[in-house]
């Protein structure tokens, strides 16, 4: 698990953003990614794999490994290392294969 160092951003110390990781509130530096928020939260996994159900946490943090897939603000399978945090953002682990919301109120078709 990772911890924040308040001394890292002396000029912007107060510019923290509150997000929710698996429902729990957490304050992270502005400019951090949603994946970083999950690592800072100490959550045991950001997703479980659709094949074997194995837990994963982010591996590369540069957008190539796709192990940081998470549900962000209700959108499944987002590459959380490429999504900067925003106030009130809700980050939920991606459990197995996503649900295709066919019976739901699907988003407006393009």
């Amino acid at each position: 698990m990772f911890r924040r160092r308040p001394e890292a951003r002396p000029a912007t110390q107060d510019r923290l953003v509150e997000v929710f990781v698996a429902g729990r509130p957490l304050r992270v530096p502005e400019g951090a990614s949603a994946a970083a928020a999950v690592l800072l939260s100490g959550a045991p996994a950001i997703r479980t794999t659709p094949v074997g159900g194995a837990p994963r946490l982010p591996y590369c943090m540069i957008g190539i490994c796709f192990d940081c897939l998470a549900e962000i603000d209700g959108v499944a399978n987002r590459q959380s290392c490429l999504v900067p945090v925003a106030p009130g953002m809700r980050i939920e682990p991606q459990i197995g294969a996503r649900v295709a919301r066919a019976d739901d109120t699907a988003p407006e078709a393009a």
Binding site: V75, A76, N77, R98, A100, R101, A102, D104, A106, P107, E108, A109, A110
Partner: peptide, 15 residues
Amino acid sequence: ARRAVQTFPWIAELN
């Protein structure tokens, strides 16, 4: 992609 979304609008949000 358009034909698929026209048939099943929920496909739009899949990657």
